[in-house]
Nucleic acid binder design. Structure first.
Lengths: 83, 83, 83, 83
DNA sequence: GTGGTCTAGACCACC
DNA sequence: GTGGTCTAGACCACT
């Protein structure tokens, strides 16, 4: 899903992928995201890249993270309220 | 009552729930709290998490515990003196 | 080992039994005694009786007990220093 | 170094050991303590017990810990200013 | 019954 | 790598 030839950075691409899951409703409000390591393995990117992508989503208010607990989809972050 | 997606840890959430019962006067001074095991079952958390929550309330001076007897609401811990 | 027809109380008899194990060196300094429940089952006496016997040995300085840890033979409590 | 027959709990004993290293100046201000897992292995106790010991030293102001970095001796925690 | 201590393991974000 | 949180279980003395 991450395209090395894309003009967008890995982090941006990963953020796009995750953002889509959130906005599409695949990951609903309150959903617990996979851990950083799992995401890194799943998309074959470095952990730093995962952190950069999550930083972006955090700034957008789509996810919130809590030390020792995990990263979660913000309750009000869904683009498709229906579904 | 414990929300895994809350920004607060399980222990903090449980402390919040218990603190509210105390401050609201639902549990009046001298009231004996449910046992640690009962609380763990009631809120579906581990006993260690219950103890962490009670540790917090103990530091706040809202409850006192006696080995072999239980945990009780401190005489001066109520927010609603009336009732 | 506890004789219902003995003129000595169950607690005294149990204390005698345990004291012998200590003084004889069978239970050496630092030895951790069986738990109260185990002792009660082993000698077929009530837990209160076990506590009474242990109280006696504590007064004699032969054992020390710590909440949540257990009861131990006092380091200097052996009658047979040799062994 | 942790004595199961001590009158003090494992956590207290471990706190004693570490406190001595600090107060004696063996671990000077700013010194980074071994990680929790290392301490657990070194003293053969569970990590939870290590954390209980560190909690105590933290309350005493002898150490400070930073998530993801480690636990360090507080600048003012030394008993032997010279050395 | 109660709380107190300890174990062994897991998964998490942070650096 | 680090510490932070949580689980599930054990055994203990105390009341």
């Amino acid at each position: 899903m991450i395209d090395p030839w894309s003009p967008r950075s890995f982090a941006e691409q990963l953020a796009d992928v995750l953002r889509t899951k959130i906005d599409s409703g695949e990951w609903r409000p309150g959903h617990k995201l996979p851990g950083e390591i799992t995401l890194a393995q799943t998309y074959d990117v470095a952990r730093g890249t995962v952190r950069a992508a999550l930083d972006q989503l955090r700034e957008e208010g789509r996810v919130v993270t809590f030390t020792g607990r995990g990263t979660f989809v913000t309750p009000e972050a869904t683009g498709s309220p229906g579904a």
